[in-house]
């Protein structure tokens, strides 16, 4: 029994890395424009299907799909930004509905092109088991986790040190003050959406190498990413990572101890608990949502 629980914890942490990438993309777009992009999970899904496309057509390892995924997903993310930016009235509400509509379009486009079957990598290299003492993982899971952690490090460095990264943080914390300092908010918003698209590309390809995807996965990923930002509070990369790991572990433990039918329920209950009991998230960011 202990073995099973330890294994569940381990698997939960590994999937948590990818969840964190998905959630960071959502948080970045939210920080810049104060809107929740309800199509973000579908962007990740699009990248996953690019990986499937490359693998099934060329027989190459799915990670070779990253350039294609970056181009396609960043282009869609940019188009999404342009559309959302056109909304002038009741911006919060209408942007929710618009991104939701784009999510429906993307999900169904993927359904039309790739059919509703579940897809996962067929690479033997990625599916090989790796053992750490009593704990097992697929090689794909380990690679995806390492990739996620490295990308989080890069993102952290970018936000902290680069001019654009600091401008993104400035716009998120005070748009008008940032404008007075000579930053063009519209440009920074574009950059945020492009970076969010890039994160979604890596997350999607990584997800494809370690898990199964189907058209409905996109919506579920959006919800998970939102749950994580609620857990973490907005504004810290380590917080998002911990929130993502917490969600991954909760799901894995639910599957191990109860049943896989309850996996989503666990995430939702965790979400509602944090929302009502700790309105500022587990890690106490200042942003209020009430």
């Amino acid at each position: 029994m202990t073995d099973l629980i330890l294994q569940a914890l381990f698997s939960g942490v590994l999937i948590g890395g990818v969840y964190a990438l998905v959630a960071l993309g959502l948080a970045l777009a939210f920080g810049a424009m104060r809107i929740i992009n309800l199509a973000h999970g579908e962007l990740v899904l699009l990248a996953a299907y690019m990986a499937y496309l490359v693998e099934s057509r060329t027989g190459l390892d799915p990670y070779w799909a990253i350039p294609l995924a970056l181009v396609v997903v960043m282009a869609v993310s940019w188009a999404l930004f342009v559309l959302v930016d056109k909304i002038k009235d009741h911006r919060e509400l209408n942007s929710l509905i618009l991104t939701f509509a784009i999510g429906i379009i993307l999900t169904n486009a993927i359904l039309l092109i790739f059919a509703s079957d579940m897809r996962s990598t067929s690479s033997a290299f990625l599916q090989d088991a790796v053992s750490f003492g009593d704990l097992f993982a697929m090689r794909g899971e380990i690679i995806a986790f390492v990739l996620s952690v490295v990308l989080m490090g890069v993102l952290w460095w970018w936000l902290k040190s680069s001019w654009y990264g600091r401008a993104v943080r400035a716009v998120s914390s005070n748009r008008n003050a940032a404008r007075l300092m000579g930053i063009n908010p519209a440009r920074i918003e574009t950059v945020s959406f492009l970076v969010a698209g890039a994160l979604a590309s890596f997350a999607g390809v990584a997800l494809y190498t370690m898990s199964v995807v189907q058209p409905a996965t996109g919506h579920a990923l959006t919800v998970k990413a939102f749950i994580i930002t609620v857990l973490a509070g907005v504004g810290s990369i380590p917080g998002v990572f911990l929130g993502a790991v917490l969600l991954g572990v909760t799901e894995a433990l639910t599957v191990t101890l109860a049943s896989s039918a309850l996996q989503e329920l666990a995430g939702m209950v965790l979400f509602l608990l944090v929302l009502f009991l700790l309105p500022n998230g587990l890690f106490g960011a200042r942003a209020r949502r009430g």
Binding site: L83, K86, I87, D89, H90, N94, I97, L98, F100, A101, I102, G103, I104, I105, T107, N108, A109, L111, L112, S116
Partner: peptide, 22 residues
């Protein structure tokens, strides 16, 4: 028109309405 995935048309209608005629 589209037996599977027909909701794509609804998504397009919804997006157009929000953008052009909120």
């Amino acid at each position: 028109l589209i037996p599977v995935g027909h909701q794509i048309l609804l998504g397009i209608v919804l997006a157009i309405m929000v953008l052009l005629a909120p």
